[in-house]
């Protein structure tokens, strides 16, 4: 498996799985405007996933396109972060998850615009404009909830406590990451982590939320070792292609 292929899969799978998670809110949002906001963001993410997975397929050169990569891979072949596959929970879990991800994606795309890989650079250029809106939206909600009522603060803090263990995985520099960075294809994750920390600290401070003391961390998604939740997502996501192979509409 080529490194560029696998690296592009990581990016594409993050977008696809989080986009799918957000789409589960369709018709269930706490208010109509938020229902529409979450499905809008889902659409951006699925659009980014389409560009990334189509490109991954091209790089691989085995006649797989974005659709076949999305609909016909098994869970172990998915390389997304554990964070993005976590269940929606309540609105606090969804928004804190979105914030932790957006705060990582924005500096990632900013720097990826200078990637030596021109296709990844152009996908980053396109996606960055959308991600700025996403980060603004999720940051404001985290602050509203954290610095809101006693109940909204309790829920937001619980969401942070639940999801914090999945955040260290965002910045693990494994062999593939360092190879891509050496080739000038991927940005330096350490710089992105610095930016991420600054954003998280500033927003949490305003939101009166605290980072949990318990430092236990979970990882594995980048290597295909997922939480139990991914299988359920794929069951729904892939149902039509599995039940009716090669169907199109």
């Amino acid at each position: 498996m080529s490194s560029l292929f696998e690296y592009t899969l990581r990016l594409g799978d993050d977008s696809l799985i989080l986009g799918h998670r957000l789409s589960e809110w369709c018709g269930h949002g706490p208010v109509l405007e938020e229902d529409i906001a979450m499905t809008n963001i889902a659409l951006d993410l699925v659009g980014q996933a389409t560009s990334l997975l189509n490109y991954a397929g091209e790089v691989e050169g085995k006649e797989r396109d974005g659709d076949s990569l999305a609909f016909l891979r098994f869970d172990r072949e998915y390389k997304n972060l554990l964070l993005v596959e976590q269940p929606n929970g309540d609105f606090a879990i969804t928004m804190v998850r979105q914030f932790l991800f957006d705060a990582y994606r924005k500096p990632l795309f900013e720097r990826m615009q200078n990637s030596k890989d021109t296709m990844l650079a152009s996908i980053a250029e396109k996606s960055l404009k959308e991600t700025r809106y996403h980060l603004k939206h999720s940051s404001e909600w985290v602050i509203r909830m954290g610095d809101g009522t006693e109940e909204s603060n309790r829920r937001a803090q619980e969401a942070v406590n639940t999801l914090w263990r999945y955040t260290s995985e965002l910045f693990i520099i494994d062999e593939l990451e360092s190879k891509m960075a050496d080739q000038g294809i991927s940005p330096n994750l350490m710089e992105i982590e610095d930016d991420w920390k600054k954003t998280v600290d500033a927003v949490f401070k305003e939101a009166t939320l605290t980072i949990p003391k318990n430092n236990w961390k979970q990882s594995g998604g980048r290597n295909g070792m997922h939480s139990e939740h991914l299988g359920y997502i794929l069951t729904e996501l892939q149902y039509m292609q599995r039940a009716y192979p090669n169907m199109k509409w």
Binding site: E33, I36, A37, N40, I41, L43, D44, E130, Y133, K136, H137
Partner: peptide, 11 residues
């Protein structure tokens, strides 16, 4: 709302 009936619109 910042997000509207299509990706390119606000309400």
């Amino acid at each position: 709302s910042l997000f509207g009936s299509t990706a390119c619109k606000s309400q």
